[in-house]
Every structure is written in structure tokens, then in C-alpha cells.
Amino acid sequence: MRTSFLKIILTNSAFFFLFIFLSELFLGNWLKISPVQTIPNALYKVSEKYDGSHLYNLKEPFIINYSRNKDGYRISGSSNNKKNILTIGGSTTDQRYVSDGETFQDYIYKYLKGEFNIINGGVDGQSTLGHIYSIERWHSKTLNKKNIDTILFLIGVNDIKFVSSEQNKLYINMDDLSIVSRIRFFISNRSFIYKKLKTLKNKFTLSNDKVKKLEIGHGAKLNYINNNQLKEYITLEKYNDNSTNYYYYLFKKLLLTTKEIFPKAKILVVQQQDPKCKFNNQLEFVPTINNYELAGKSWDKQDVISYCQSLGNIFRIQENVLNESDNFKNVTKVRMFIDYPVPKNGFYDGLHTNKIGSKFIADYLFKFIKE
């Protein structure tokens, strides 16, 4: 009897809250929705503090200051400056655990002596699929198209899931645009009740100084192979056209969409460096680690080799798209994965850079931006 009564209460409570949420969705048109609120995993109007001591293997707290404005951007520069460079990518562009003022965008801004604002539009976990959605639904709505001089894409790693079902299992799809995901993100950004419950949760879970815990996906454990052993390069396997056609058209759509919406902007496609895979050229690589652990999942050497194979094929597909049409002659390709400009001490895990790595990236990209 008691169990049945409890079920009735829980069922009615669920229907009550569902009714409230639906009422807010369909009757709450007076609430204003920012374009960035429709982008999965994008943050806006935040000023957070993170303790990065675990990432950086420090015994004392290491406070990281992270902020985004009302439009969802980290801005290096002044609101009065009408010349802008927009950077788009995933977590390696976002740099959640690098403090404001120490990102690669901040360094580039200083190198350009304030001539351009550098707009950080990175979204943790976002792939080319999400970049297209962001170009169409976010950047085109919030930015003055005439004032965007250059758009820089730092991409590669998050696209692996499009060419390898095996590697796809290792990733959470952070730019899932399914109906269920859209409804979930829509509710999380629009519901008054949801926001109040989240505020109450943060009040009890965060410490007094509002320092947040680190999120899953950062802080991997790995050991690099001795440089003397990095001699035998592996030849990249030929990819299956049938399994990679989707990414081929996805990347092509990204470029065409960008050119259509920002016709005057220069486009830089930066094929990002992954410290786990050292490429000798476009067809040869060597894994730099034997094993790897991230978010509770362990990779052995064969997993790393498979990963590098997929990453190399992503860059080959990009190359094919860029070479096939005169439409992309003005797109600059930057082979960062071959040049390998960031040293080992520039990463705090198997992919993400610290402030040392940020400066190396800025030094490397600056010459391409100035061309």
C-alpha cells in the first residue's frame, strides 16, 4: 500500500514538473533567447574559477580564471575595435583551463599590437558538425559580418568520430543536434525552474570562493616514448571512401557555409597538432606514447596507432576537399600536425595546452595570420 502511494506521488510530481516546463516553453515567449543558447555545450555570461592543481600536478591550489561575455565569446581586445579575427574549434580553442589573458588568442592580440580583436568562439567537444551549426545559428547572428577579417578553424581531433566507428566509442558527442538533445538544451537555457534548481545545487556543491571542479575529458595520464625510439614511421592506411564520404561533404559544407555568410573573411584551416601522433609527412606517423588513460578509459599502443590513423585520414580528406575546387584557393591550409610546433611541456595532458603551449601556438600561427 505504501509503495503504491509513493508511486502515485512520484508519478504526479513528474507530470506536474513536465507541465511547468511545457508551460514555460510554449507560453513563455517573453523570455529572450540568445543565439548561443541553442549551441550544445556553449557557455555565455560566465565568470568562473577553476582549481587546476590536479591538471598541472601541483600540490597547492592553482586558480584559473575563465570568462565568457553575453554572446558566448572570450574577447581579446576592445569593443571599440571594428577589425576582428574569429577563432573556431573545440576544447583546444576554448582553453577552459587556461586563464584569461594567457590563451593563444591573447598572445596573438598582443603580437598584433591591438590592431585586431581576437574572438574566441571555441566550444568544448564541438566538431565540424557543430561548427557549421554555430556559423549559421550563432556567429552570423551576433557578429557584424563586415568586421570579420579572418576566420581561423583549429580542427581535426573532434572529427575522428566521422571516419572511425571504433574511435567514435571513445568520444561523447558534445555537438549532438538530435531533437532530444535540442529539447534538453532548450529547457536548460529557457526554464526558470531549471535555472533556480541549478543555482541551489551550485550553492551547496561549490566552495565559498566558487572554485569549480574540473570536468571529464581533461587531465589524462600518459608517458611519452623516448625520442631515440621514435624512428620507425608507420604508413597511413588508405581510407574507405564509402565510410568517409560523410565527412568529405561535411567539411566541404563548412567551408562553403563560411564563405557564403562571411564572404570577405580570409579562412585559415589549422590542422591541429596532437602530441600523441608525430607526423613525418602527410602519409607517415609514429605514436609518441605506448599507453594512455583518459576519463577512466585506457588505451594501449594499438589503440593509439588506430587513433593516429584516423586523425591522419581526417587531414587527408580535408586536403582533398581543398584541392578539388577553385572555390577554396583563398583558403589557407596550415599543417600544424606535421610542423609539430608545441613541445611536450606545452601540454597538461594528451591534447590540451597550458599557457606555455598557448604561446607556442600563437608564435606559430602569427606568421600565417600576417600573410
Rank of each mutant, 00 (worst) to 15 (best):
A362M: 02
S76I: 03
E215H: 10
I172T: 13
E60P: 04
R190G: 00
L255I: 15
K45D: 08
L10I: 14
N189K: 07
L152C: 13
S79V: 07
N65P: 03
Q302C: 05
L170Q: 11
E319T: 05
V334R: 11
S164C: 07
M1V: 02
N290W: 02
F21E: 11
Y247S: 08
N226S: 14
S134P: 11
K238S: 14
S76H: 07
K253Q: 13
I305P: 03
A220T: 12
E166A: 14
D51H: 08
S13Q: 02
D300H: 08
F26Q: 06
N320V: 03
Q167I: 04
E166K: 15
K238N: 14
H131A: 01
F16R: 08
D71S: 08
R74V: 01
N226Y: 03
E60L: 05
L250M: 08
H131Y: 14
N291R: 12
K370V: 13
G156F: 10
Y364K: 12
K198E: 06
N41C: 12
N323R: 12
R182K: 15
L351N: 04
T258C: 00
S298C: 05
T235P: 12
L154Y: 15
K253E: 10
D274I: 12
L170A: 13
K252D: 04
F116Q: 04
N189F: 12
L58E: 05
Y73E: 01
T288Y: 00
D124R: 14
K329W: 00
D274M: 07
I317E: 02
F104E: 05
I187S: 00
F328N: 05
E136R: 15
T332I: 13
T93Q: 10
I187Q: 00
S34M: 13
H139V: 05
L18A: 15
E319W: 08
P61A: 06
R335Q: 11
S243H: 06
L152K: 11
I148N: 00
C308Q: 07
K169Q: 13
S76F: 04
N227H: 10
K141V: 03
S99V: 04
Q95E: 10
Y247A: 12
S91K: 11
E166C: 01
H131I: 02
N80V: 04
M1F: 09
Q95M: 09
F337G: 05
W138R: 07
D241M: 03
